[in-house]
Design a protein around this nucleic acid. Structure first.
Lengths: 319, 319
DNA sequence: ACCGGTTGTGCAACCGGTTGCATGTGACCG
DNA sequence: CGGTCACATGCAACCGGTTGCACAACCGGT
């Protein structure tokens, strides 16, 4: 592997000049840059990130922390963040960790010491634990907000409110909301939005859960849903909706028909029936926004913007 | 932040001794170690990984490369790999990339230069591209095998064969296999196993696809399935199964009943009907095994074990 | 012709560990 | 009792960039 010194020798300049020519060209004469560039790619020189990081006191790593990977919900968010990270020459390391336990907190503190910044996706656990991490390194929250921290949140509360209202308008008098996941920061806001929308439009709302975002939880929830007598159900996650739909049908309940279940567009479209509400979170936009915020926070520690990304609500059309 | 030099000064030893005491205790007198340890945690010393890496010529990074993150299939694999990576003090960076295009190959070559090793999960694209990456850094393949490279594969082929045979035994004369994903190394093996099992047990098998591992693809596949006249369908992925099941039911087809669809246990259980085959891949075990192999390959470049992990087949029992 | 101000480059220290080699000490052996 | 050896520790070079500071050359202005 060619080093800076090799390039310098070949080009006839000092290491320092070569370093500047490559990293801060505005400080170096154009002609010099040209010669150095030529020498560099004649030797196939590539920057040693480790050395660079040591000298600059950075690690070139950003951590993306999720409470679980079982939930496909995080995948597009990670993808979006990943794409942006690559653009700013950062590596994104994905870690499963929880802030709910002392052990989890300790693990994250250790991690924080080894990265330049972190994105905490839907972190559960007490706010002081979140603050403890944020005190170590620039931190951005996803789907949670906290005093003095930058965050980006998918505004599912508004979307769920709109869905509940829309259902009421379409004649549903009894609506069930399946909330979760347990410990979620978003959940109370969603439930509140659902309640408010129901109240405003004169429908009755039952709130169930919290449920984890899993197919199995959807299965479990079926009994409660049937018991509630609701004609429409709004689960907060797709996996939940699928588990619910399949189980309902397995018990001979017409879905939609006797009970309507909202989901995301790909699912509602598949049902081939009009008038089903779909809630779609743009995960990759969420991830990108989070990474952008992290970039900002890394250069300016006073960055504390709170972003709320709109969430799409669609009603399936006649086929 | 305390450095080695600080600890050395406090403990009254040389940097080098402190370094050894902490990293290679067998070279240092026990009493010395004790004093150094004391000094170290009095100062709250933690190793600077960047400096360590520079000195040792490693990056402390392993890359986990997936073709896409949309597919929840990779999540548990990543989780498993991640857990093992943490144990060996490596960071796992998850990257979405493809070996099918020149651009993708170039991106991966760049990535390979910056990590200590890579895990390529279900990589598509020509074998020479895989080899090109493996030539740069120790590489482990997941769900693909290649000459001279360590790999770990979930033996879905055998599982699918067993399912097809089981279906035939239970009286299904016409079985459809939904294959994929496009470009998959596994797919031909799966299709072959399905064909062989069908032939052996005297059932008729139609092979469809390849389909991507998505809910939407399951929706799309419905027409073809109905056309085939099959009474049982074996899709290679859960998302595919769900899309198919929902769409079939949306069209008034009894599932199971008129058409039986295999899936994974969580789904088949939800259906509440006995006799449905489930195929379950232990994703985290796959990830762990891959990371273990990578560890081995990083120390011993001649490591070329090919692991095949068994895949669980279960028939749902009467409820 | 002189001076303050740019601009371009070199020098050397520095980031914080790691490691080959040298040195010193005491134990063990003949 | 001298010699050999294992063991513990120190010294200093090294990994490969980055950057503050010094210095030289050259600029236009007076």
């Amino acid at each position: 592997m060619a080093t800076l010194a090799d390039v310098a020798a070949l080009a006839g300049y000092n290491k320092s000049t070569v370093s500047r020519a490559l990293a801060r060209p505005e400080m170096v004469a154009p002609e010099t840059i040209a010669r150095i560039r030529a020498a560099a790619d004649q030797l196939g020189y590539v920057l040693n990130r480790t050395a660079s990081q040591l000298a600059r006191g950075r690690t070139g790593l950003a951590a993306f922390v999720v409470p679980t990977l079982e939930n496909a919900f995080f995948a597009p968010i990670i993808g979006g963040a990943q794409a942006r990270a690559a653009e700013s020459d950062l590596h994104l390391t994905v870690t499963v960790a929880s802030l709910e336990t002392a052990a989890g907190l300790a693990a994250l503190e250790r991690l924080a010491a080894q990265v330049d910044g972190l994105i905490l996706a839907a972190p559960r656990g007490p706010e002081e634990n979140v603050a403890a991490i944020a005190a170590i390194k620039p931190t951005v929250l996803v789907d949670r907000e906290a005093e003095g921290l930058p965050s980006v949140v998918a505004d599912t509360a508004t979307a769920i409110g709109a869905v509940v209202q829309g259902l009421a308008v379409r004649g549903h008098r009894r609506i069930a909301y399946l909330g979760g996941p347990p410990g979620s920061w978003q959940d109370p806001g969603r439930a509140a939005a659902a309640r408010e929308a129901a109240a405003r439009s004169g429908a009755e709302l039952t709130v169930h859960g919290p449920y984890p975002a899993s197919f199995a939880a959807g299965v479990t929830a079926t009994a409660e849903v049937l018991e509630s007598g609701a004609t429409a159900v709004v689960p907060y996650a797709t996996a939940l909706a699928l588990g619910l739909i399949l189980t309902l049908r397995g018990r001979g309940v017409q879905v939609p028909g006797e009970v309507l279940v909202s989901a995301e567009t790909t699912v509602t479209e598949a049902l081939g029936v009009p008038g089903i509400p779909a809630i779609d979170v743009a995960g990759d936009a969420l991830g990108r926004a989070a990474m952008d915020l992290l970039g900002a926070a890394m250069t300016d520690p006073t960055e504390t913007s709170r972003l709320r990304l709109p969430v799409q609500v669609t009603w399936s059309r006649p086929a």
